[in-house]
């Protein structure tokens, strides 16, 4: 799966290397170490990190590879999934962005790999999958990765698509509004 780029996970849980770049012997690849808020560390190559506008701007500002960088607001699980996504898509040229029209957003289809990626977002700590989807969306938004934001929002939209109000409230755990509030909404 991770044939497109290099990804190494150095977390204390002793996870092994998840992928290797076949061309890594030919040319040394600039790497960046990221530490999440729950102290998991990841090493990613620069190309992968630059999928995130947040890191891209940071790397441009610092003009070089900085020391291990602490990523706030992002958990280890989310960052692992983000790196997985970016490793696969870092060579893509056609990424969705905020300026796309509604029709082009609607017509863009979720690819096969992306579909598997979303399906593999497992139940972390027994939480419903939607929690992980929302968490990952927030992380993607924080790190500013347009393609992942599109994928996550589309997946969440597909989750709630043919559902009535009560079920949407249940999915997002939104409390039922009071009678007065409901009246205002209805009006």
């Amino acid at each position: 799966m991770f044939h497109r780029a290099n990804l190494r996970n150095n977390s204390k849980n002793g996870r092994s290397q998840v992928g290797q770049n076949r061309n890594s012997k030919k040319k040394p690849v600039a790497k960046l170490t990221l530490i999440t808020e729950d102290n998991e560390s990841f090493t990613v190559c620069k190309k992968v990190a630059e999928m995130s506008m947040f890191f891209k701007n940071m790397l441009q500002d610092t003009e070089g590879i900085p020391a291990p960088f602490i990523v706030p607001n992002v958990s280890g699980y989310d960052l692992k999934k983000i790196i997985e996504y970016c490793s696969y898509h870092c060579l893509d040229t056609d990424c969705p962005n905020d300026n796309d029209s509604l029709r082009s957003r609607r017509d863009r289809k979720i690819g096969h790999w992306d579909e598997t990626f979303v399906r593999n977002i497992i139940n972390k700590d027994g939480d419903p999958v939607i929690d992980n989807l929302v968490g990952l969306t927030k992380a993607a938004y924080f790190l500013d990765i347009p393609g992942l934001i599109w994928l996550m929002t589309k997946s969440i939209a597909n989750t709630i698509d043919p559902k009535p109000i009560a079920e949407i409230r249940e999915i997002f755990n939104v409390p039922v509004p009071s009678e007065r509030e409901e009246e205002i909404l209805q009006r």
Partner: peptide
């Protein structure tokens, strides 16, 4: 859901 996330979700719908 902050508006920045809610709006793209609704736009996908």
């Amino acid at each position: 859901l902050p508006n920045e996330i809610l709006v793209p979700i609704l736009r996908s719908l």
